[in-house]
Design a binder for these strands. Structure first.
Length: 636
RNA sequence: GCCGACGUAGCUCAGCUGGUAGAGCACAUCACUCGUAAUGAUGGGGUCCCCGGUUCGAGUCCGGGCGUCGGCUCCA
C-alpha cells in the first residue's frame, strides 16, 4: 500500500503497516521521536495500522506546541498519575483521566479522603516512574473480556465505561497499570520532560451531582521544562490582570463579607459603569428601544404565573412579614415586569415590534460556592430588553440584536464566541414550531455573517437562543450576552395583540441582554484592558502635574480648560516629588499626563502619553487628539 | 450545595514544637518645592474572620459557622 507524506512524496509500505512502521521506513531517529500520527488530519495512535492512500503526518517531540502532540503527552501523563496513585493508595478506584487544554486530570475514588499535602508524594512517584522508564502497550479485546477483567479488579467505574463504550475496546498498559482507553498514547515516557500536579478538587462521576463525588487530581505536562516555566509565568501574568486584583488596586470596586456577591462601586468604577449605561441608553434610542422602569418586588402570584416560583424559588430572595409565609419575591429577571407592562393596555399589530429596555438591579441567590468576583454575583444588573413581535418579525428582530451586539463588542475590540442553542429534550411546543424558530435564528446569524457553533439540546424549554461567550484571563469561559426567543411566557401572561384580521394573536417575545450583566461585563473589560482603559472609558483621562508649588494655580487653570472641553481631569498637587507623582499616574494607568512648569504654555505642553512616552504638543493638538479617541456614539 | 486549601494592620505578607503580635507599602505630622516611574525623618494604627472547647495560658491545637480561593454541579 501507499501513503502520502506532507511533502507530497509517496511511501510504499506492506499491507497493515502502522505509522510507526512508516516512521521506521523513513529514519530511525524519526521513529524514536515520534509521539503521534496525524492521518488525514485526525490524530491517531502510532501503533494502529494505516489505511491505504492515507495522508500521514508524524508529530515528534519537536512539535512541542502542537495541541494534539501536547494532548497525547498529557493523556499519557494522566495514566502515569493513575499508576502512581494506585501504588501509593491501595484500594483506590480509577474513573477517567483525559487531557484538557491546560493539562490533564484523573478522577479517583479514594478509600480514605486525601489532602493537598499528599500530592507531593504522588508527584515524586510519577517522577520515579519516568526515571525508571515506561512503555505503553496497546491491546484490543472484546467488551466481555474487558468487563470481566475490570469487574475482577473491582474497578466498577471502568465496568460502567465498558458498558457504554462504542466501537472496539482497547487497553493500554504501562508499568503495572492497565487502563481502559481509546488512546492515543506515547510510545514511552521519555518525551515527558516536565510534569507537575497542580491541584485537587471534587468532581461528580459523569458530571452528575446525584452520583458519587470523586476526587480529581489536576496536573500539567510539557515536552520541555522551559515550556512548563513559560506556562507558569503566563499564569502569573494573568493573575496580575485578574479583575479581582485590579478592581481594588485601581480603586474601582471592592467586595465585602457584609454582602457577598454584591459589589461596592467606587467613584472611579462608577465612571466605567455610567459610560456603559450612557452607551446603552444612547444606542437604544437610535435603535428604536423604549426605556421603561418596572418594580423590584412582585407578588408571588406573578412568579407563579411566570413559572419561576416553581422552578427557581430556591434561588430567589423572598419577602415575608414577621412569621409569615413569603408573599412576594425580589425579581431575579425583568421579564414578568415587561409582560405586565405590555398587558396593561390593548395592543395592535401596528404597535409591533415593541421594544422595552430596562437596566435594572436583579437579585439571584446563587449557590455560595459559585460566586466569583464580578463574574458571578448575586446583585446582577442586566442591560435587558424584551421585544414583542409577530412571527414574521422574528428574523429581522434577531438580526437587529446581532447587529447591535457586533457594534458593541467591536467598540471594545472584543470578540465573543456565538453559540446557537437548539431544542432541549423537555421542550414545549411542536417540532414544526421549533423548526421555524431555530431556522429564524440560524438565518439571522448567517445573514449577519457571524461564525457560530451549535449547542444541540442546549436551548431553554420555551425557545432557542443565541449566547455570547468570552473567556477570562485564566481561560475560563463565561456567558455574556444572550438573545432568547420565547413562545411561552406571553401566553402564560395572557398577552395578545389585535391583528390586521381583527382577531387576537399571542405575540412572540425576544429576551435579550447584550452586554449580559454589567458586573460581569466590567469584570471582563478590566481584564481585557488589564486596567489600561481607552481614553473614553478611563476614569481619569488626564492628570496635570505642577512641577513646583508655584505652578499649582496655572496647572488648575489648564485643568479647567481641558475639563471645559468635556474631559475628566485631575490635578495632582500633592506635596510629593514630581518623580513620585509621575509614577503614581503611571500606576493608575491614566492615559495622559501633562507636566506644567516654567517651560510650558498652551502652545507647548509636555505631555506624557501612556505607553508611548513623552511628547510636546499644543493644547489644541492635545484636545483634538482626545476628541479623536472618543467614539462617535459617545461624543456629545 | 459538594471536594480541597486559605482567613494576622487599609494592601501584600512574616510569625518555629502554645507563653501578652511584626515588616514593607499605604496613612498622619514635620522638613524639602522638586523637570518625567518611589526625598528623608518621626508617628498612629490589630476583636489575629466569628462562636464554642482543650489548656495555668490559644493567632498557633480541636469542633461548628461565615467568607475567600481552586475545582465540580447549577446559572431563568
Amino acid at each position: 500500500m501507499r501513503i502520502l507524506l506532507p511533502d507530497d512524496t509517496e511511501l510504499e509500505l506492506p499491507e497493515g503497516a502502522s505509522a510507526l512502521d512508516a516512521a521506521r521506513a523513513i529514519g530511525p531517529r524519526l521513529a524514536e521521536q515520534a509521539v503521534l500520527a496525524r492521518v488525514d488530519g485526525e490524530p491517531r495512535d502510532l501503533r494502529l495500522p494505516l489505511p491505504d492512500g492515507a495522508r500521514l503526518q508524524l508529530l515528534t517531540t519537536r512539535d512541542r506546541e502542537d495541541p494534539d502532540a501536547l494532548a497525547v503527552l498529557r493523556h499519557s501523563s494522566a495514566h502515569l498519575l493513575a499508576e502512581a496513585v494506585r501504588r501509593l493508595h491501595p484500594g483506590v478506584k480509577v474513573a477517567i483521566g483525559p487531557p484538557i487544554d491546560s493539562g490533564f486530570y484523573y478522577d479517583f475514588e479514594f478509600p480514605e479522603p486525601i489532602h493537598e499535602s499528599d500530592l507531593e508524594a504522588i508527584e515524586a512517584e510519577i517522577r520515579r516512574e519516568i526515571a525508571e522508564g515506561r512503555r505503553w502497550e496497546r491491546q484490543e479485546i472484546t467488551a466481555d473480556e474487558a468487563r470481566s477483567r475490570f469487574a475482577h479488579e473491582g474497578e466498577t467505574y471502568k465496568v460502567e465505561l465498558v458498558d457504554t463504550a462504542e466501537g472496539e475496546i482497547s487497553l493500554y498498559t504501562q508499568g503495572d497499570f492497565t487502563d481502559l482507553c481509546r488512546g492515543p498514547h506515547l510510545q514511552d515516557a521519555t518525551p515527558i520532560q516536565a510534569i507537575t500536579l497542580t491541584g485537587l478538587a471534587g468532581a461528580y462521576w459523569r458530571g452528575d451531582e446525584r452520583n458519587t463525588q470523586l476526587t480529581r487530581i489536576y496536573g500539567t505536562a510539557f515536552f520541555t521544562q522551559e515550556d512548563l516555566d513559560a506556562h507558569l509565568a503566563r499564569l502569573e501574568d494573568a493573575r496580575a490582570r485578574d479583575h479581582r486584583r485590579l478592581g481594588p488596586q485601581l480603586d474601582l470596586v471592592h467586595l465585602s463579607d457584609a454582602s457577598p456577591g454584591s459589589p461596592f462601586w467606587h467613584p472611579k468604577g462608577m465612571v466605567l459603569w455610567n459610560t456603559l449605561e450612557d452607551l446603552r441608553r444612547v444606542e437604544n434610542g437610535r435603535r428604536g428601544y423604549l426605556e421603561v422602569k418596572t418594580p423590584l418586588i412582585y407578588d408571588r402570584t406573578v412568579w407563579e404565573t411566570s413559572g419561576h416560583w416553581e422552578k427557581f424559588r430556591e434561588n430567589m430572595y423572598l419577602v415575608a412579614g414577621e412569621g409569615e409565609e413569603p408573599h412576594a419575591g425580589l425579581k431575579p429577571m425583568n421579564c414578568p415586569g415587561h409582560m405586565l407592562l405590555f398587558g396593561s393596555q390593548l395592543r395592535s399589530y401596528r404597535d409591533l415590534p415593541l421594544r422595552y429596555a430596562e437596566s435594572s438591579t436583579l437579585h439571584r441567590n446563587e449557590l455560595a460556592g459559585t460566586l466569583h468576583g464580578l463574574l458571578r454575583v448575586r446583585h446582577v444588573t442586566q442591560d435587558d430588553a424584551h421585544i414583542f413581535c409577530t412571527r414574521q418579525q422574528i428574523e429581522d428582530e434577531i438580526f437587529g440584536c446581532l447587529d447591535y451586539v457586533a457594534f458593541l463588542y467591536d467598540l471594545f475590540g472584543m470578540s465573543a464566541r456565538f453559540e446557537l442553542s437548539t431544542r432541549p429534550d423537555d421542550k414545549l411546543g411542536t417540532d414544526e414550531e421549533w423548526d421555524f424558530t431555530e431556522g429564524a435564528l440560524r438565518s439571522a446569524l448567517e445573514r449577519r455573517g457571524l461564525d457560530y457553533f451549535e449547542g444541540v439540546g442546549e436551548g431553554a424549554f420555551y425557545g432557542p437562543k443565541i449566547d455570547l461567550h468570552m473567556t477570562d484571563v485564566l481561560g475560563r469561559a463565561w456567558q455574556m450576552g444572550t438573545i432568547q426567543l420565547d413562545a411561552q411566557m406571553p401566553a402564560r401572561f395572557g398577552l395578545t395583540y389585535m391583528g390586521a384580521d381583527n382577531a387576537e394573536h399571542v405575540p412572540y417575545v425576544i429576551h435579550r441582554a447584550l452586554l449580559g450583566s454589567l458586573e460581569r461585563f466590567l469584570g471582563i473589560l478590566i481584564e481585557h484592558y488589564a486596567g489600561a482603559f481607552p481614553l473614553w472609558l478611563a476614569p481619569v483621562q488626564l492628570t496635570v502635574l505642577p512641577v513646583g508649588e508655584g505652578h499649582r494655580e496655572a496647572a488648575r487653570a489648564l485643568a479647567e480648560r481641558v475639563r471645559a472641553a468635556g474631559y475628566r481631569v485631575e490635578v495632582d498637587e500633592r506635596d510629593e516629588t514630581l518623580g513620585r507623582r509621575i509614577r503614581d499616574t503611571e500606576l493608575a494607568k491614566v492615559p495622559y499626563a501633562v507636566v506644567w512648569g516654567d517651560r510650558e504654555s498652551d502652545e507647548s505642553l509636555a505631555v506624557r502619553v501612556r505607553g508611548e512616552g513623552q511628547a510636546t504638543m499644543s493644547l489644541d493638538d492635545l484636545l483634538s487628539r482626545l476628541r479623536d479617541e472618543t467614539p462617535a456614539v459617545l461624543a456629545s
